[in-house]
Design a protein around this nucleic acid. Structure first.
Lengths: 175, 175
DNA sequence: GGAGGCATGTAAATGGTTACATGATTGG
DNA sequence: CCAATCATGTAACCATTTACATGCCTCC
């Protein structure tokens, strides 16, 4: 249940409403942990019930700002340092690679070249973010930059792999 | 619903029972698309109902071998070449990085160094597989090797990143 | 006063995990 | 004959997605 802890992590910085948090899921966290509005509001209720956050202020339009509690900070720290992360593996694009032999090689090459392009584009998009966001020296921003660097390196590795793989498959046919 | 297509892909090679398929999910496909037994048997029924596979033979202990149908092959090809893969992003380990600033730097470095170790170990495990499996020149095995190469490169990139990130965080403290 | 954005909520469906259950067959 | 493995099934639960719904406030 990482959504829980993602919310705690965001609230550890400063109080925020569901609406605020949603925007952060749509920007910084979008690439590592997407969340929808319905899920988010529900989870906030549950976190409040569990005493990990509390309603700290209310504003116009039923706006409710939540703040993390001490129990919440403890839970966050526990999750960060003592809960083994799931190095989960589900990878739709890579799953397809196992079955590329069922289509003819030209199509397989097309698939891999397209993947390469997508990874390059993704890397480009991340570089844009890196260059345009006004990063400050807050803990959050510095950590976000570490995560972004991971995205750059991993998409580069994937792009290079896809180009290599396309060459492998192409080499078999015309070689 | 990639499980569906993963099953079709495996059956495209040759007929197999749910039990056989489960073993393949626990070995070759384990790292890209895990599946549980209950899920698998249910999906096979649904695939049969949809006419994409059919019960081809029965054996002892209610064993049922399924074979892919022409409709199934068409669906597989459609999925492979025309359905945009989900370049999904959920990454529990990387999500934590966003929140590392909430724990003290020594703990953050520990976390990153541990990640680096895990990625290296994972790469090692893959290398073992690469070296010990008796790969044949079948389409499936050749494609599986492409996928494995992806795993090697991506885990290497992740390991190198984690080491770099640990250095970044450590540098801030004692620098 | 109306449009657009703020702000939250609920319901249904899907996909996946965990746990429990059962019974057949084979090999030692 | 017993243990291990083969082989399938079902029920409950959890996380996530999609769609629908509502109402408030601000700015023009």
């Amino acid at each position: 249940m990482s959504l829980r802890h993602a919310l705690l992590g965001l609230l550890a910085d400063h109080p925020a409403s569901g609406y605020d948090l949603l925007k952060r899921f749509d920007t910084s966290l979008a690439f590592v942990w997407p969340a929808t509005q319905s899920q988010l509001y529900g989870e906030l209720k549950r976190l409040a019930d569990a005493g990990l956050i509390e309603a700290a202020a209310t504003g116009p339009r039923r706006r409710t700002d939540y703040a993390i509690t001490e129990a919440g900070r403890a839970e966050l720290a526990h999750w960060l340092t003592e809960v083994e992360p799931e190095h989960s593996r589900r990878n739709d694009a890579l799953l397809r690679v196992f079955f590329l032999w069922t289509v003819d090689p030209a199509r397989a090459v097309e698939y891999l070249e397209r993947e390469a392009r997508l990874y390059r584009q993704f890397g480009e998009a991340l570089r844009q973010v890196a260059d345009t966001v006004a990063w400050d020296e807050s803990g959050f921003d510095r950590c976000a930059r570490l995560a972004l660097e991971n995205g750059l390196r991993v998409s580069e590795a994937n792009a290079a792999w896809a180009e290599w793989a396309a060459g492998e498959v192409a080499g078999d046919t015309d070689g």
